[in-house]
Amino acid sequence: MSCGELTESDFGLCGACWGDTPFIGGTVCESCGVPVIGSADRFRTECDDCLKTPPPWNAGRAALMYDGKARSLVLALKHGDRTELARPAARWMAQAGRDLLRPGMVIAPVPLHWSRLLKRRYNQSALLARNLGQETGLDCVPDLLVRKRRTPVLDGKTARERGDVLADAIDIHPRRALHLMGRDVLLVDDVMTSGATLAACTRACQAAGANHIFVLALARVAKDA
């Protein structure tokens, strides 16, 4: 799925690409999923950034670091029409987020504005969410959230600037609010950078009466990137 070499199963990685793909393992921040130094204990493990500015969701995880082969795979899914990558990626995400899954939880992707969706033709986060629902047996509501206005590209902006851009940009689809009342929600995105987009989605879900909110990304940008 990365270099085109033959593998033993469909949608697999050859040994070389597997070794070059930065899967996240070991001790991670329980809020954002970034790897941290040390071993887990009975206390909640968090990175310095999440201790300083706690995210609004309950817990978060990611399957990969956004670097090397992982970055290439994410970009192929996002911009290269490699929609078939969503299925194996969802398997990796299910493994990375196994501690977040709850009975009766609803899965929802980060939404695209309709104009961007029209140009791209698909929402990569929605593809991941659908496949994750099939992988876990949990309900997936692809249009649970809507982006009310088109926001500029967030690359290069600080966390504060990203938050300002996204303020009031995301809301619950008026016909989907009943899916949220009193339920746990798993928000799905392809890449988590500052977490501003997922924070905006979290606040929209909380305002609509959701219970606990968890986030799961395919890839996590390193804090010093």
Results as ranks from 00 to 15, higher is better:
A129M: 01
V191Y: 05
R160C: 00
M105W: 12
R82H: 10
N211L: 12
R175N: 13
A108F: 09
V146D: 01
V110N: 08
A196C: 02
T193M: 09
D164Q: 15
L180R: 11
S194T: 15
D189Y: 01
I107E: 04
L127A: 02
Q124A: 05
L85A: 06
V185I: 15
I213D: 01
A208L: 10
T202D: 11
L178Y: 13
Q206P: 00
R203Q: 14
A90D: 07
A217L: 02
L166D: 09
T151G: 11
E84T: 08
L101S: 05
A108T: 02
G156H: 11
L112W: 10
K119C: 02
L218G: 05
V146F: 02
L218P: 06
I170W: 06
A76K: 13
L154D: 12
A204Q: 07
T151E: 11
R120K: 12
H179W: 15
G137K: 08
Q134C: 03
R203T: 14
A94Y: 05
H79R: 12
P103N: 09
R183D: 07
R176G: 12
K148G: 12
D164S: 14
R130V: 03
S115Q: 14
G195F: 07
D81L: 06
Y122W: 01
L218F: 11
A96P: 00
A219W: 07
E135N: 07
R102W: 08
C201Y: 06
A159D: 13
L128M: 08
T197M: 00
G97H: 05
V146H: 06
A199T: 07
A219N: 05
A96Y: 05
K157R: 15
C140Q: 03
T158A: 10
G97I: 03
T197R: 06
M192N: 08
I213V: 14
M181Q: 15
G133D: 00
A217D: 05
L166S: 11
M181A: 15
E135F: 03
R160Q: 15
W114S: 13
W92A: 06
G156Y: 10
N131S: 08
R175L: 13
G163C: 10
D189S: 04
R147C: 11
R87T: 09
A76T: 00
A159S: 14
D184W: 08
T83V: 11
I107Y: 09
R203F: 03
L178T: 13
T202H: 13
R162T: 04
L101E: 00
M192G: 06
E135P: 07
A167C: 00
R160F: 13
A217M: 03
P111R: 03
V106M: 05
C205R: 07
A208E: 01
I213K: 05
R150K: 15
R98K: 14
K119R: 15
R175T: 03
A94N: 02
R130M: 09
L186C: 10
T202G: 09
D190P: 07
